[in-house]
Structures are given as structure tokens and as C-alpha cells.
Amino acid sequence: MRNYTPLVTLLLIYAVMIAIGQGIQGMWQPIMLVIFYIAVGQALNIFLGMTGYVNFGYVALLGVGAYGMAVALGYYTDLGLIPALTLGFILAILLAFIVSMVVGGIALRLRGAYFAIATIGVNEGIKYLILGGKIWGGSSGIVLSGILRKAYGAETMRFLSTVFADAGLIVVAILSGVITMYILNSRLGYGLIALREDEDAAKVMGINVRRYKQIAFVISCILAGLIGATAWTLKLTYVFPQDVFAINYTVEAIVIVMLGGAGTLLGPVVGGLIYALLKYYLTIAFPGMQLLILAPLLIIVILLFPEGVVGYLAKAARGTRFEKFVR
């Protein structure tokens, strides 16, 4: 039974968010922060949520995506704006693809927590390769705003770093949602969920477990690369290795997926909303104390709603006419 109706809920939420962001003064950046967190959660969810495997190296994929775009715009500026941007997206995808194939090829042979901890070295490895090997400017990073301004003019630069970057991120976020929905409805999705519940049984049933995991891993990683390219390189107009290969983003993404409900379509959206808004308002209300408050809240949520908010709602909505809208 194919069911794409939860996408209606998803698009509705995005529409409301964009309307709020555009309609109310000062809400656009906070909305973009929320969408960034949603996107990060959504892309991670495709792998983590569906397989139950934790990818600690996740942020490294955002990092290489960010570098792909930065290298194209910074080193191939002369190609012209559209070709350089296109190259940027291609490089972001390509780098993410290569990293995910290599890491997946090695680490996906491991089960459960072994996999999680094995991937923790990935982020550090890539960061120190760039730093130690002095690749792409090493620790000096790539600073783009001056280059872009000179090459394409101030107006274009401003357009790139505000309108285009934000639009790009929204597209990637929605795309991640659509792909999630597609996978949930496909053979791949059924296979993945089977292996999440019981990997050995799935194997016995003739599911090619390794291949399924690898596909989900690569898709998740490429989307992460695109998030890095839009939300970081284009929006911030600079890339520093210490800055993009920061492990806390991985953990934040996991928190979002868990809060919302792993393996659901709407989970990362709800998780991202709760997480980002909670943090944003705690920041304003209790400067410097927000993490101290957030941490116990998180523990309480884990203890009370182990399957996440959407997991809980989906259960609650079962058998009602809302059932097909929540997943």
C-alpha cells in the first residue's frame, strides 16, 4: 500500500514556516535555523532512522560538501557564476559520494555500536588531512565573499549568500523529505526496516543487507553534502576546517531525529522545530544557561517518549482518519 499523503503534512509545515519567515519581521533567520536543523535531521534519518545505525562521522559529509562548493567558487571563479555554482554542486555530491563509499565499504561491515564508534574517526581523519596536508588552504580555509564580490559584483554576492543559499537549503530539506517518503514506500524501505528490527532474520529472508545499508548510507551522505554546500558555504561565504568538521552537529542531528522519532517522515521536522525553537528561546530568555536547561529536558524526553514525538503521535493517530497524514 503506497501512501504519499504524509507529504501533504510535510509541505504544509514548510509553507507555514516560510509564510511566518516572510511575513513577520526578524523571523526569517530563525526559520532558516529551524530548517537547517530539520534538513540535517532529515538527511541523517534516511540512514539512522531506517537502519538504526548511528553515523558519528555524519558532520564530515556536511564538511566535504561545504568544501566542494567552496573549492568550485573559490578556485574556479573564472568559469563564470552558473558554471562555477554547477561545478560546486557536482563537487559537493561527488566528494560526499566518494567519502560515503569508502567509509561505508569499511564500516558497514560492523554491527550496531561498533559501527557508530568506527565512524567517529572519519570526521577527525578528514579534518586533519586538510589541516596537516595544507589542502585547500589548510587552516586558513577558503573565504569567498571578497572573491565573489570582485568576480560577480556585490549584488550577486548578496543574492547568493542570502536568497539563493536559503532557497537552496529549503529545496534540499524538502528533497530529503520526499526521498524519505519514497524510500518508506519502496522495497528498499521495507528491507531496511526489516533489517532494523532483526538484521539476521532479514538476511535469512534473502534481503541483501549490505547493499541496502550502503544505499541508504550513500543517499544520506549526499544529502548531507548538499546541506553543507548551501547552508554553510553559500550562506556563510567561508569555510574553515575547524568550523565545519565540528562533531557537535552530528550529535545535534541525532538529538533531532530521536526527539521527533527515528524512521518517520515527520520526525526530523518536529524534532528540528522543537530543538531549534527551544534553543533559540532559551538563548534569549536565559543567556548562557540554555544548555544547562536543555540537557535534563532531553533526558526526560528520552525516558518518557523513547519512540519520539511523531512515533508517539503515529501510534495515537492509528485507526483515526488522521492516520494517513502522520508517518
Binding site: M32, L33, K235
Partner: peptide, 11 residues
Amino acid sequence: KKENVQSLIER
């Protein structure tokens, strides 16, 4: 954190 800076500047 860089993301927060951008939101806060806008706010």
C-alpha cells in the same frame, strides 16, 4: 556558533 550568530543579528 555561527548559525546562531546569523539568527541573532537578524533578530
